[in-house]
């Protein structure tokens, strides 16, 4: 039998560890185009298109309290692996995910796109880590919300396509009460 204590050990937090050099073969313009596409799919509630960007080792993380504490031992707004992203998409596609039915009207701007470094992945490769700032205006029946923050992406080239491995969204106001976040941030 597995001992109780062995199961309490936490893996390193997903943003722990040192970056390595920016991997070869990435063009900043191409990276930006990918980020803009991801943003457009999210803005337009294209759930299938957005979900298809992710790799199987996906991690979609929206912490609270700045950069957040360890997401396996403390609560986050979102901490989705690939399965949970899929569940989230299936739920919203029922049309009865009332927090997003009707869906938000939404547009976001991404800026300050910066290639940050390389991040070694479990398969032995190196993913590209990209930082950006964003601002999104959300319109819902009860009013508008302005969302803003810092996004860290990890990207990987798979069969000649750019895919999304990791997206961490640190909202500037994540130390305060947040309204319902029903859309894809």
């Amino acid at each position: 039998m597995v001992t109780v204590n062995a199961l309490t050990e936490l893996p390193p937090r997903p943003d722990a560890g040192e970056l390595v050099a920016i991997p070869q073969g990435w063009e900043v313009r191409e990276v930006e185009q990918f980020l803009y596409r991801e943003a457009r799919l999210a803005d337009e509630n294209d759930y299938d298109g957005w979900e298809a960007l992710w790799t199987n080792d996906a991690l979609y993380w929206v912490p609270v309290d700045g950069e957040g504490d360890h997401p396996r031992s403390t609560v986050s707004v979102i901490f989705d692996n690939r399965n949970r992203i899929s569940t989230r998409m299936k739920q919203v596609k029922t049309g009865k995910r009332y927090a997003q039915a009707p869906p938000s009207n939404l547009r976001r701007i991404i800026g300050n796109v910066e290639l940050i470094g390389g991040r070694e992945n479990a398969a032995g490769g190196v993913d590209l880590e990209v930082g950006a700032n964003f601002m999104a205006l959300e319109s819902r029946p009860r009013g508008n919300e302005l969302w803003g923050g810092r996004v860290t992406y990890r990207l990987r080239q798979v069969d000649g396509q750019i895919r999304l491995v990791y997206k961490k969204v640190v909202l500037v106001d994540n130390e305060r009460p947040l309204p319902t976040l029903g859309f894809l941030i």
Partner: peptide
């Protein structure tokens, strides 16, 4: 012990601003 991480994970999925249960209650 081993229930703690599961309870954190289930709670993140269910409650809070993006929770798959509580965001709908809040609506």
């Amino acid at each position: 012990h081993e229930l703690n991480q599961r309870m954190v994970s289930q709670s993140i999925g269910s409650v809070g601003p993006a929770g798959m249960l509580l965001a709908d209650d809040t609506e």
